[in-house]
Design a protein around this nucleic acid. Structure first.
Length: 134
DNA sequence: GCCAACGTTGGC
DNA sequence: GCCAACGTTGGC
């Protein structure tokens, strides 16, 4: 099973909304690298849910419930999306500032490539985050 | 197929 | 609000 980190601006789609919806199509990704990461996702993979711009913290995790399929919001039909569900809030959120101070986490892919909206998370990083947040 | 110009993202 | 990073577009 793989782990990922997906970003969303709370003003566009927030964690509260995710909790209310229980399930969401991850539409709107228009970047090939991010799309490739989504293509690699399997049902059951865990995605950390990160609030960008406002909050700048990991707030919880969701699970992939449907693999890569066409994104109806893409008029050109080039990009796809995955569907995520089963949102689980963390007892403690994890801010970007804290991540940058943490030896195991400061090299996370999304920290280095801040513009990438879907990025891989290693086993080690995920285990560490679970330890901090639960 | 290169590269300059431009647009967007996101941290600060 | 600024700016760095980086993806995309379009002229040649």
């Amino acid at each position: 099973m793989a782990h990922w980190l997906i970003k969303s601006e709370p003003s566009a789609y927030s964690w509260d909304q995710m909790m209310a919806d229980k399930k969401a199509d991850w539409t709107g990704v228009r970047n090939y690298q991010a799309a490739n990461n989504m293509k690699a996702m399997q049902v059951g993979d865990i995605c950390l849910f990160y609030h960008s711009n406002e909050g700048k913290e990991i707030v919880g995790q969701v699970e992939v419930v449907k693999t890569y399929h066409p994104d109806p919001t893409d008029e050109k039909g080039k990009f796809g999306m995955v569907t995520v569900g089963k949102p689980k809030p963390f007892k403690q959120t994890l801010t970007l500032a804290a991540i940058k101070e943490h030896a195991t986490l400061q090299n996370m892919s999304f920290v280095k490539q801040s513009r990438l909206s879907v990025s891989p998370v290693t086993e080690k990083e995920y285990a560490q985050i679970c330890k901090i947040c639960n």
